[in-house]
Each structure stands twice: as structure tokens, then as C-alpha cells.
């Protein structure tokens, strides 16, 4: 029925194309304050506010006010201002969401008067903050600890798909690998180290040498496979989780190690962040 309705409305409008200044019925006029900077702001604000035959809005750049004409039976001032706020512009009724404001073009970043608000979410890592002092002490004691620290930083960089950070972390990892003195290793660490040392160094070097994240991930798959026997052989202050994603590399799968039990998959962007499972907990 709605469609037929629309035809009835559309037909006379087409026939009288000249009379295009749509009349607003039950018109109410108000002046409202809306923040903004430039011409682009004006365009965004007016596009967000205007509604055919219901709302006409004219925003003034200098006074930062808008003249609002609207059909008071069909809409309200708040409804219009909410739409404008959701497009990124504060008014005297609404503050725009922070993410939407942040996404505005640079020239549109007007000065905001608001206080408080949603602080950008930070990852919740209670285990890490609580265990910091202990961990640094452990790092001095165990040479492999330094390697694993660098490995986890690399893994986190891949989780957030940051190729630059990953390359930096891989450089650190190479340094850590090179600084391992075999004579300081425990016997079981020693035998594990002997088997994987060469491949670890190659993979870490490969990751550091490229900024192509898919190549980094391919090397990381091999690196992680070799990290596993090493970390398994090491004494750990806290458990390490051996995790597996069956989908990577066309279903061949790939493993990684993590200090968190929650799955954060380093092989895919955030869309498949939770893909995977913990296959073993190393203690």
C-alpha cells in the first residue's frame, strides 16, 4: 500500500516540477545552536537535518546557529538535532558520539565544549599489569624469557594487523635470539634450543625484513611451530597457551602461543579474531 501511496504523491509532483519549493505544513521556526567550522560542515549538517517537506534547515557558519523550519506535527526539534549529532555535530541538545566526531574530516574538527564521555576502550589485561614486577625479575634470570617476551609482542602486532610494529618486534626478537647464551640454558632448554635455533632466527629475520603482513604471517606460522618446543621446555612464571586455528593457509591450519587463554588470532585481521582453540596449556 505504501508504494501506491508514494506513486500518488510522486505523480502530481512530477507534473508540477516548477513548483518545487516544497511547502512545510504546520510550520514551526526555531533558532538553534549547532557547532561546526567550515563549508563542509555546513553541507553535512544541512544534509543530515533536511527532510523533504518536513524539515528545512539553514546553518550559519559565523554565528554557529541554524534556523530550523519544520512540520511540528511530523517531527520535533530533538529528532532533527539527534540526526545532526549522529552526523558528528554537537548542539545544545546533543553531543555527537566521539567516534563519529573523530571520523570527521580534519577541517571539520571544531572545538568541543563537552566534558567527560566515553573514554576509548582499552584492552583489559589485568594479568599483565599485576605481574609486571615479577616478570622483569624473571626476564633477567631466564634468557629464553626475553625471547618469549619479544615473541608475544610480535604476536600482538599481528593480532592488530600492524605490519610496521610486527617488523620492529621481529627485529627485537632477532636480537633476543642472538643474545641467548647456550651455556646459561637448562639442560632440557638446551636440547630444544639446538633443534630450533636456526629456523627461529631465519623466520624472525624474514618477518623483520618485510612489511607485507601476509608474508609476515606465513613466516610467523613457521616461527610459532618452532617456538612451541622451546617454550614447552622452559620454566614459566605463568601459563602459556598453545593455540590453533584450523582455517589458516587454505585449511592447513596454523598454531601460535599466547599468554591469554582468550583466543586472539594473529593470522587474520580482527574479523576472525576469535577463530581458533587452545590445544594445550604449557605450565
Amino acid at each position: 500500500m505504501q508504494f501506491i501511496h508514494k506513486i500518488w504523491i510522486a505523480l502530481p509532483m512530477l507534473l508540477s516540477a516548477t513548483a518545487c519549493t516544497a511547502q512545510i505544513k504546520n510550520m514551526k521556526t526555531e533558532t538553534v545552536k549547532i557547532q561546526g567550522n567550515c563549508e563542509m560542515c555546513e553541507h553535512t549538517i544541512e544534509t543530515a537535518g533536511n527532510l523533504k517537506k518536513t524539515v528545512r534547515l539553514d546553518w550559519n557558519r559565523d554565528t554557529k546557529t541554524a534556523v530550523l523550519e519544520y512540520d511540528s506535527l511530523k517531527t520535533t526539534r530533538d529528532e532533527i538535532l539527534k540526526r545532526i549529532a549522529l552526523a558528528g555535530y554537537d548542539s545544545d541538545a546533543y553531543f555527537a558520539p566521539d567516534e563519529v566526531y573523530a571520523a570527521l574530516p580534519e577541517c571539520c574538527h571544531y572545538e568541543r565544549s563537552k566534558k567527560g564521555g566515553r573514554t576509548p576502550a582499552k584492552p583489559l589485561r589485568p594479568a599483565e599489569t599485576a605481574a609486571t614486577p615479577e616478570k622483569t625479575a624473571a626476564a633477567e634470570a631466564a634468557p629464553i624469557q626475553k625471547v618469549s617476551e619479544a615473541y608475544f609482542t610480535l604476536k600482538d602486532a599481528l593480532v592488530s594487523s600492524d605490519a610496521v610494529k610486527a617488523a620492529t618486534a621481529a627485529t627485537r626478537l632477532s636480537e633476543a635470539l642472538n643474545s641467548v647464551k647456550m651455556e646459561e640454558l637448562q639442560p632440557q632448554e638446551h636440547s630444544a634450543w639446538m633443534q630450533v635455533e636456526k629456523q627461529l632466527k631465519t623466520d624472525a629475520g624474514d618477518i623483520a625484513a618485510t612489511s607485507d603482513i601476509s608474508r609476515q604471517r606465513a613466516s610467523f606460522a613457521s616461527l610459532s611451530q618452532n617456538m612451541y618446543p622451546l617454550l614447552k621446555a622452559t620454566d614459566k612464571a605463568e601459563p602459556v597457551y598453545y593455540q590453533y586455528c584450523p582455517m589458516y593457509n587454505e585449511g592447513k591450519g596454523a598454531v601460535w602461543l599466547s599468554r591469554e587463554q582468550t583466543i586472539k588470532n594473529p593470522y587474520y585481521g580482527s574479523s576472525m579474531l576469535n577463530c581458533g582453540k587452545t590445544t594445550e596449556t604449557l605450565r
Binding site: S160, G251, Y268, G269, S270, S271, M272, C275
Partner: peptide
């Protein structure tokens, strides 16, 4: 979470795993 993807950016990939996207922002 997975970032806004433009239509054209999407590449055909071989294999079963097709969820790979470069994240627009950290998850």
C-alpha cells in the same frame, strides 16, 4: 570490529578461508 571495507577492495581469494581483512582499527 572487522573494519569498514569498500566494495572494490574485496579480492577473490582461493581456498576456503575468506575472512581475511586488514583491520581498520584495533579490535
Amino acid at each position: 570490529i572487522s573494519g569498514v571495507k569498500k566494495k572494490k577492495e574485496r579480492k577473490k581469494k582461493s581456498g576456503t578461508h575468506v575472512h581475511e581483512t586488514q583491520a581498520a582499527k584495533p579490535a
